[in-house]
Design a protein around this nucleic acid. Structure first.
Lengths: 388, 388
DNA sequence: CATTCTAGTCAAGGCTCTTGCCTGGAAAGG
DNA sequence: CCTTTCCAGGCAAGAGCCTTGACTAGAATG
């Protein structure tokens, strides 16, 4: 049965949800402001605040309405309780591991980075992941209490004052990994001819003891597409990532579609047009042209950018044509180092194809995968708090 | 703001929705049965029945609880009002037009078929569509009242008794067409090298005056996939249709994904492996092998089945490999005449590919597109009745 | 110091839901 | 035939949630 059972309790929980969401948007509100903000009547809003305060989700900040605002009676500002919890967003890439901790308002509470040697060995990655997460918990524990307004903390938090407490565990984690991810288990998967830069890692196992709730892992390109969608919501598009590895994310009807195992868009083995018009898997085009790094599956980005071989553009054109026929996107977004550099050539190639699609460069340039993971982590944290 | 605003009216409408849905499932219920069925208390259920009766959505059938059931007081059986409306499901294919009218229980009220000449001319198709819909409305108007239980009527309704009334207009229509459909306008679209069997038809325009509500048009393969999903719910699969035309439907996360224009899965121009290992569009493989009907874009099914050329199987393997990489389906379902006949060959081909996917034949064999359209029409009618 | 304005509370009223009891009527059983 | 058993439906009481409207307390304005 789809619709919720009608009951008075349902109404009450809906009211509480509205109040909590209003506080997430505005961080500091009086009961009267909550009432106008949510459209709920004053007594009901006040009652909800009483309930939520009792439950420990909301606190009276002690602050009162500033004198400048008007003449009336002073009001009490309420906000989310500082212990409603935080969300962890983690990015695992060949360059290193980045972990961020955010509160329910989306404030960055702490951030930690751990570099990785190249090539990264699986054990090193796992250790770096653990260190980054431990460090970010440590830093978050040193933060001034949430609930009082403070500047988004920069990285330069003084590490000399180090209280014993490592800070409370985040209530969930969202992890981005620069490799295919198994949708069921969250483990990194080695696929034939797909890039495999990090090794067989199990982020869920590493984070299980460090997070007090669910751990969601997905491929970095999927998260980048999520960030791209947040920046410019287009319901149907494909995100093609062209760098050391080849990736692709598919957004249909406003959501990233991951497929059964979670490896939708692992395009390395897609059959496309190779040199001389022969049909061959996309990744083999690079092999034929001698553009793969020795002893690894990675593409030699420097050489691609030097030589800019037309055969590569043709091969990418074949990939985009396949996307156009199977997915019917409104546009194709190109990310990754050599993809963005060659975007004009790719655009020309696609424009002459029988099913042309607009091609444009990714808008989110700075840490796109982490940005997507962060957005998702924040969304999930909020859902958790309102009790969905 | 996502969650509904809490109000007493919300509770009431939720109760009414539960009652209506229970009546849709069970067609005939007393107030006491409604109460136990929905989990709502007796007085509340009774009050809802009173409201809905007053609103004309529910009627007292006059029938009373049968003696055999127990000793207690007799109860009144309620059911949906006979005029809550009907849904129209229409299939337009080269073989002809089929129109069906269903009530909210899913009973077939009437059915009409109109053959088409081959090749079908657009004007003929439009006229046949109009005739089929008019005829089905006529037949539905002759039906005994809904609400009293009756057998699913067979096709052989005596046309001699013909009352003047053409029957009320259906509240919505869902149309399947054997050609690409524009998602925004519902018109049939001619794409380069895609099969175009019916011509430039605008079903929305034809049905606008004949239906008292929205008209939804989509490609027949998408509807077939919908029916396949209803028969065996698999969240992620692809439906490949291999007949005169080449089609493909994509189901991700339990929904058919149509893409931006609605032409996701129009695979005729997908680049695959052609004869001699050359890369070429799928449909051109048939051109190269001389397997297309003269003077049309259609594939000569008879010749394909006679010759069973390995090159065709290889080309289809390339299509499925592309689906596997881009969509990551749990399985691929094969439909269409020659596709089903060659399924073993296709399965072998896919099994040796680097990303093998289980391949199986379509389970819904009888009018699959109409079955999907019917399911969807029924679902939409019910949503309309409960007032979503 | 009176006025004006506003946050928060109180009181009344309306709805909706639930529990529990009662009633009328039919079958079952002696 | 009369009593018992059983059940659909209705009634009454009660609790909970939301709303309107009035009231109160407290601060700034003039």
């Amino acid at each position: 049965m789809d619709p919720a059972k009608p009951s008075q309790e349902l109404l009450r929980s809906l009211t509480d949800e509205h109040v909590l969401r209003a506080l997430m948007r505005h961080r500091l509100l009086t009961r009267a402001e909550l009432s106008t903000e949510t459209g709920i009547s004053k007594p009901t809003a006040g009652e909800s605040v009483r309930r939520l305060t009792e439950a420990g989700l909301v606190v009276d900040t002690g602050r009162r309405t500033p004198g400048g605002r008007g003449r009336g009676r002073v009001g009490s500002y309420y906000s989310l309780a500082p212990d409603v919890g935080t969300a962890l967003a983690v990015s695992i890439a060949p360059e290193g591991v980045v972990a961020e901790c955010h509160n329910a308002y989306g404030d960055l509470m702490a951030r930690a980075q751990e570099p990785l040697g190249r090539p990264a060995r699986p054990d090193d990655v796992t250790a770096a992941l653990a260190r980054a997460v431990d460090r970010v918990r440590q830093l978050a524990g040193e933060q001034p209490e949430a609930g009082t307004i403070h500047e988004s903390p920069s990285n330069g938090v003084d590490p000399s004052i180090r209280p014993a407490s490592p800070g409370p565990k985040p209530r969930l984690a969202v992890v981005s990994a620069a490799d295919p991810v198994d949708r069921q288990t969250g483990r990194l998967l080695q696929l034939p001819d797909a890039p495999f830069l990090l090794g067989e890692i199990d982020p869920v196992a590493v984070l299980a003891g460090r997070v007090d709730g669910p751990v969601h892992v997905d491929n970095d390109v999927n998260w980048a597409a999520e960030a791209e969608w947040a920046a410019a919501p287009v319901d149907d598009f494909a995100y093609v990532y062209l760098d050391e590895g080849l990736g692709c994310a598919i957004v249909s009807d406003g959501e990233v579609r991951r497929g059964h195992r979670g490896v939708a868009g692992e395009v390395a083995h897609l059959i496309t047009v190779g040199p001389g018009g022969r049909a061959m898997p996309l990744i083999e085009v690079f092999g034929e042209l001698g553009l793969r790094c020795a002893g690894s599956t990675a593409i030699d980005v420097g050489r691609v950018l030097e030589e800019r071989p037309p055969a590569v553009v043709t091969a990418v054109g074949g990939l985009i044509a396949a996307l156009a026929t199977l997915i019917d996107p409104e546009m194709v977004v190109i990310g990754g180092r050599w993809g963005m550099q060659l975007i004009d050539r790719i655009d020309q190639e696609v424009a002459c194809s029988p099913r042309p699609v607009p091609v444009r460069a990714a808008k989110v340039q700075h840490e796109p995968a982490l940005a997507g993971a962060r957005t998702d982590a924040l969304h999930r944290l909020r859902e958790l708090i309102v009790g969905r």
